[in-house]
Design a protein around this nucleic acid. Structure first.
Lengths: 119, 119
DNA sequence: CTACTATATTTAAGAAAATTATATATATCA
DNA sequence: TGATATATATAATTTTCTTAAATATAGTAG
């Protein structure tokens, strides 16, 4: 995939999903995990990631704790109870959406049927 | 799905796909087809659809022909040769993207393994 | 004959989201 | 010393979509 166009609209839900699964992660780790799970085909850029994390935090869906590891600050994000609830809802919605998309992408063209009666 | 958030970024490709399959369609028909294929779960709004069609046309990926049906104008859109090429590329990219998304959404949490040696 | 629903396209204003680029800072390796 | 990896932050711009409104015809219910 040369561009990341399809990730639009799914970033929030991807983040919620990863955090629902991992208990806590820091920003950089999230980008690496997405790269890993996608075989480097999807890049979650920092310019998209961090503003989304701040927004989720501002909405009370995430809480942060900062740890110093190797002299560098790491900000861990974890879901709040409301965040966990929303994660479940959004993940199942996105799953359903991927099913619909698959259906659209693989739907067979409409064919015209002709019956031929043999005498 | 109460919101259409996930469709962002996929509209162009959905349109290209439908046109690759149907030879020609008009705008209203495209919205109806998306509704039908998604069991009314995805609404392709006119405000999103038409500007996208105009853009695709301006890029030389679509051509239009207008027909009058029941006194009402219908503008049919069809892929140009370049549109057909792009449709193939984008559809396979989006298919790949849905696979990756599924992987992210269903990926099992990392578990810690403990080996226990029996004496 | 009136209102409502369905068909059909167009477009403007505003909001939301992401891209791109830059800045800052430490650690590690060659 | 320079390059690469780790780590966060944020501003400017662009793209894209939502929401809303305008226009117009056909068919149906009352």
């Amino acid at each position: 995939m040369q561009s990341n166009e399809f990730i639009k609209g799914t970033i929030r839900t991807i983040i919620l999903r990863l955090l629902a699964q991992q208990k806590q992660m820091y920003g950089y780790e999230i980008t690496q995990r997405v790269a890993q799970l996608s075989q480097d085909e999807i890049k979650l850029t920092y310019g998209a990631l961090y503003p989304t994390l701040y927004k989720l935090e501002a909405e009370g869906l995430l809480v942060t704790t900062t740890e110093i590891v190797d002299n560098r600050a790491r900000k861990y994000y974890a879901l709040t109870p409301e965040g966990k609830k929303l994660a479940k809802v959004k993940v199942s919605e996105l799953q359903r959406f991927t099913e619909i998309l698959s259906a659209i992408l693989t739907d067979a063209p409409k064919t015209k049927m002709t019956l031929k009666w043999q005498s």
